[in-house]
């Protein structure tokens, strides 16, 4: 059910690459520095194993801006970075112009806004590319161990659920900060995405 042909996998990888290109440009404008990007990856695995992959990159306790998206396919997308770096990102966003107490106060709001802009840039360009439409929920900010956040679905732990896991890492070298954007897509949504991709590929 969760099988992908080589070309479908390649196409999904390229969709993420295009989406993250837009997201990185938006993030780069906000923090006024270049955002380095990794090669994207697409895997089918359990939510728990997805969390392990992210934790191995040094993100044990994370801050995640989560947006649920729906439309021609659906799922969760998250902007993820290490918890101990979240204030650094806020510094980058508001250019170190505010005192620390105000900065701390603004942290949640600032992080949700950066998540909202980058995740929508990513999702929007994927939808545009496939000439379809998706809408996304308001962002929410989550903090905690990677396994807990990735394993949660509407308040229920479903860490053994197998999902399509899309991930692309980014880095702000000047701030010594790295994070990633991930998509968690269940099997039904993945089936819909495959149909759209096959339809798109039939033009070539």
């Amino acid at each position: 059910m969760l099988n992908l042909t080589e070309l479908q996998r390649d196409t999904i990888t390229e969709l993420l690459n295009i989406g993250m290109g837009r997201a990185a440009a938006a993030l780069s404008e906000m923090v006024s520095e270049e955002v380095a990007l990794s090669v994207p990856s697409v895997e089918v695995l359990s939510r728990r194993d997805a969390a392990v992959l992210v934790r191995e990159k040094g993100c044990e306790r994370i801050v995640a801006v989560l947006q649920e998206f729906s439309g021609f396919f659906w799922g969760d997308t998250m902007l993820v970075f290490p918890e101990d770096k979240s204030l650094d990102l806020v510094h980058s966003l508001i250019k170190d112009t505010f005192p620390l107490d105000i900065m701390t106060e603004m942290e949640q709001e600032a992080l949700m806004e950066v998540g909202n802009i980058t995740l929508n840039a990513c999702i929007g360009s994927i939808a545009n590319f496939l000439q379809s439409e998706v809408s996304s929920s308001l962002p929410s900010l989550l903090r905690g161990p990677c396994e807990v956040i990735f394993g949660d679905k509407n308040g229920i732990q479903v860490d053994h659920e197998v999902v399509m896991f899309l991930r692309m890492d980014f880095a702000l070298h000047a701030r010594d900060m790295q994070g990633c954007v991930v998509f968690l897509v269940d099997s039904d949504a993945m089936g819909m995405l495959r149909e759209h991709i096959d339809q798109f590929l039939s033009h070539f």
Partner: peptide
């Protein structure tokens, strides 16, 4: 040819004498 449309990348392409084409 790249999805990475950041200005710094465009500038590097231009400095190397290359055309820049944004993906998709």
């Amino acid at each position: 040819v790249t999805a990475n449309i950041q200005e710094s990348v465009r500038q590097r392409a231009a400095a190397a004498g290359m055309e820049f084409i944004a993906k998709p």
